[in-house]
Amino acid sequence: MGEPAAAFYARRGNAVSDWWTLLHPPYTAWHLSYVALGAAVAPALDWTDLAFTLLAFFLAVGLAAHALDEQQGRPLRTGIASTTLSAVAALSLLGAVVLGLAGAFFRDGANWALLAAIPVGAVLVVGYNLELFGGRLHNDHVFAWGWGGFPVVVGFLAQAPTPAPGAVAAAAAMTLAAVGTSYAQRRLSTPARRLRRDTVSITGDLTTTDGTAVPLDRAVLLSPLEGALRAMSWAVPMTALAVLLASSSRG
């Protein structure tokens, strides 16, 4: 089998292609959507707070996390220099922390819950992507909670909500929903990555009940995995947009 692209969204050929691939556009949009969903279930929606929270997560997840991950064995096979990746990771994570501190202290008083989330986010980005602590943070469960549940919680907290029981319950339910879809993403993307990046050959047939033999190859095995990932990568952002619009219309 010929060498496939590192991911279904990956591009090759020039620096623009490398940066596009590094940003993981479908997945970055997917996980930024969790921030929006958290904000949308707050009692009142402040679009400025949401914009800065989205920017902070883009810096932390879209840039810093992906730059650190690419330094670990070059899984995306980009030509971006290691020094550039290190600089992007450091500056992006610093920018995310600064934005978090600004949100915690300089908008309508101190937001202590948001402040507490800042070091948690920094540890998740660095620990997960560099596989620190013996890789204990690099697993399906940490991914589901760190890349799914955590953005919902921070999106909610950044709105500085009043502790109304209904809003807290809604945020808790949305957090669990994000954990579930992120866990599903991980369970789909892990075998897809293995097929694209670590598989040399595939042999065998699938025989149906009517006796038809379907030869198995990379494309056959990838199709249901990446078909589901593609669908979810636009369905979750569209869900976030719908919930935001509904929240805004209620005023």
Results as ranks from 00 to 15, higher is better:
Arg197Asp: 07
Leu99Trp: 02
Ala116Gln: 07
Pro26Arg: 03
Asp198Asn: 10
Trp19Asp: 00
Pro215Ser: 12
Phe133Thr: 15
Asn129Lys: 06
Phe8His: 05
Thr28Asp: 10
Pro163Thr: 07
His138Met: 04
Val123Lys: 05
Leu225Ala: 02
Gly135Val: 11
Glu226Tyr: 08
Leu188Asp: 03
His66Met: 14
Asp198Thr: 11
Ala117Asn: 03
Asp46Gly: 08
Ser189Trp: 02
Leu37Pro: 04
Gly95Val: 03
Val88Asp: 00
Phe8Asn: 02
Glu226Phe: 07
Leu188Trp: 14
Thr190Val: 12
Ala172Asn: 13
Ala172Phe: 08
Gly134Leu: 14
Ala6Arg: 07
Ser223Val: 00
Arg107Met: 07
Ala40Ile: 00
Leu132Pro: 10
Ile80His: 05
Ser201Gln: 10
Thr83Cys: 04
Ala96Lys: 03
Tyr128Cys: 07
Leu124Cys: 06
His141Gln: 14
Met174Asn: 08
Ser249Phe: 15
Gln71Gly: 11
Val168Asn: 13
Trp147Ser: 13
Ala219Leu: 13
Leu132Ala: 09
Phe143Gly: 11
Gly62Cys: 14
Ser223Asp: 13
Thr78Trp: 10
Gly211Cys: 14
Arg197Met: 09
Ala177Phe: 15
Pro26Met: 00
Gly127Asp: 00
Ala81Lys: 10
Asn111Leu: 01
Gly127Val: 04
Arg12Ala: 14
Ala44Met: 06
Arg194Gly: 13
Asp205Arg: 15
Gly109Phe: 02
Thr190Cys: 09
Ile80Asn: 09
Ala56Ser: 04
Ser33Pro: 01
Arg187Tyr: 10
Leu176Glu: 08
His31Glu: 12
Pro224Met: 02
Asn139Phe: 08
Leu101Asp: 09
Phe133Leu: 10
Ala246Cys: 01
Ala192Pro: 03
Gly121Ser: 00
Ala39Lys: 05
Gln72Lys: 13
Ala40Asp: 02
Ala81Glu: 05
Met232His: 15
